[in-house]
């Protein structure tokens, strides 16, 4: 660690037992919920690697569900999330599986929202409570949940990227990182912008108006990350 602060050493305050298997899992659940952005009816958790083998002992299942319910990694109700989710009538299922060549602590969320739209979100807990989301509905994204983020799905029209950057620039919002993915050339493309500031609603509305824009997701940071630990 190059620059270590006081609360990197004394923190985070979290629900145990494991920053990667519990705190990180809760953040993954919460970010998945934010991406869907609507009431959730059903979630299937495809658990990969170490998640698939040890999820019960580390409470990874409870943490993932807690995140889906919108809890932060330091929420004392995290322990009883499996009971809470039942009360809310959300159907859940855990399926240990092998997703292929991914980080050992990886989960794929299959989520059905209130409008019966299905979402596929894949993310990993990469240590010390840090996470990354790699795929949303088959599109590659680059999302850590530490920065405010905008993800757009749009027709692959030339100039779209420049238009979005322009809108952000005019709003005085710095772009910390950008990733573009075109799984099929000429079809839909996905752009992920991690930003230095939260994005006001009117800026999002402006982006939605860009020609060929199908979908815009905004995500604000999900709980704090921290240091490396067990």
């Amino acid at each position: 660690m190059a620059n270590v602060g006081v609360f990197d050493v004394l923190g985070p305050i979290m629900i145990g037992p494991s920053s990667s298997h519990t705190a990180g899992a809760a953040r993954l659940g919460k970010i998945a919920r934010t991406i869907v952005g609507k009431e959730i009816k059903e979630v299937t958790f495809l658990l990969h690697g170490s998640f698939s083998k040890t999820y019960k002992g580390h409470g990874t299942d409870r943490a993932l569900v807690a995140g889906i319910l919108g809890m932060n990694p330091d929420d004392a109700r995290l322990r009883s999330s499996l009971e809470l989710v039942k009360q809310q009538g959300i159907k859940i299922e855990f399926v240990p599986t092998d997703l292929g060549d991914y980080h050992p602590n990886t989960v794929k969320f299959l989520i059905k929202d209130i409008d019966d739209v299905t979402w596929e979100i894949l993310g990993s807990s990469i240590g010390g409570g840090l996470i990354k989301i790699d795929e949303i509905n088959g599109n590659k994204v680059n999302l850590t949940g530490e920065y405010p983020t905008i993800i757009t799905s749009n027709e692959d029209v030339p100039g779209t990227l420049a238009k979005i950057s322009g809108i952000l620039y005019d709003a005085g919002i710095n772009i910390a990182s950008m990733k573009s993915d075109r799984s099929q050339k000429g079809k839909e493309s996905t752009l992920t912008f991690e930003l230095d500031h939260e994005v006001p609603l009117e800026v999002v509305e402006q982006i939605k108006l860009i020609q060929g824009m199908n979908h815009v997701i905004t995500i604000n940071p999900v709980g704090g990350p921290n240091n490396e630990n067990c």
Binding site: L10, G16, S19, N227, N229
Partner: peptide, 21 residues
Amino acid sequence: EVNGSMGKIVACPTAGSCGIL
């Protein structure tokens, strides 16, 4: 024990060593 029971702790510096300080 609180950490293992999914209780609230301060990782100081880590969750595994959260009892010492």
